[in-house]
Amino acid sequence: MATIILDQAGVARALTRIAHEILERNKGTTDVVLVGIRTGGDHLAAMLQERLAQIEGETVPLGILDITMYRDDIGTRTDLAIGRTDIPFPLDGKNVVLVDDVLYTGRTIRAAMDSLMDLGRPKSIQLAVLIDRGHRELPIRPDFIGRNVPTSRDELIETEFNDKNQPVEVRLVKK
């Protein structure tokens, strides 16, 4: 059984709000870069890049981060495929907005921060997530949240993307 948490319009509104919050916190786009975590966060980061450009009239640099080799469960999982990190700009001195679709235990974000630090020395790392579902195992909290959705551990949050990598809906699913 699945419950729709956000439809396509709801996702769009959440990303627009997050874009405004990013601009307010950083006082514009100077030294702001977006880095999406592959897969899911990279698509949302691209949409945030569009929103920021619409609002500010400037294009914020966009990168994609693959964290597979930084995962703390890499030795126990056989279903992981190594992707490609593509960050075509220096991170040194930048305010990096790390983007992911769902924040759960915090382990993915820890891996992403480790990966970013190997690539440079950002001025700050800020976290933007579409859904914060709770159940943190590490002391990590998002700076920008599309929606808080309290869940039980036997539930999943799924973000469905269409063939153009646009989020169609976010669902809460019972295992």
Rank of each mutant, 00 (worst) to 15 (best):
M1R: 03
I4H: 07
I4N: 08
A12R: 07
A12H: 12
R17Q: 04
E21F: 01
I22H: 01
L23V: 04
R25P: 00
G28H: 06
G28V: 03
T30E: 12
V32H: 05
L34H: 09
G36Q: 09
I37H: 02
T39C: 03
G40D: 02
G40V: 08
D42F: 14
D42K: 14
D42Y: 12
A46L: 14
M47E: 08
L48H: 05
Q49D: 04
R51K: 14
A53T: 07
A53P: 00
L62M: 05
G63V: 11
I64Y: 12
I64S: 12
I64W: 02
I64K: 15
L65E: 04
D66W: 03
T68E: 06
M69L: 13
I74L: 15
T76R: 07
R77M: 06
R84W: 11
T85V: 00
T85A: 00
P88A: 11
L91E: 11
D92H: 07
D101M: 05
L103S: 06
Y104T: 11
T105R: 05
T108E: 09
R110W: 09
A112V: 01
D114L: 14
S115Y: 09
D118P: 08
D118Y: 10
G120S: 05
K123M: 05
K123Q: 15
I125M: 10
Q126A: 11
A128I: 01
D132V: 08
R133V: 11
G134L: 10
H135R: 08
L138T: 02
P142N: 10
G146E: 00
N148C: 09
T151P: 03
R153A: 10
R153T: 14
L156M: 15
E160S: 14
F161E: 03
D163S: 11
K164E: 14
K164L: 13
K174Y: 13
K175L: 13
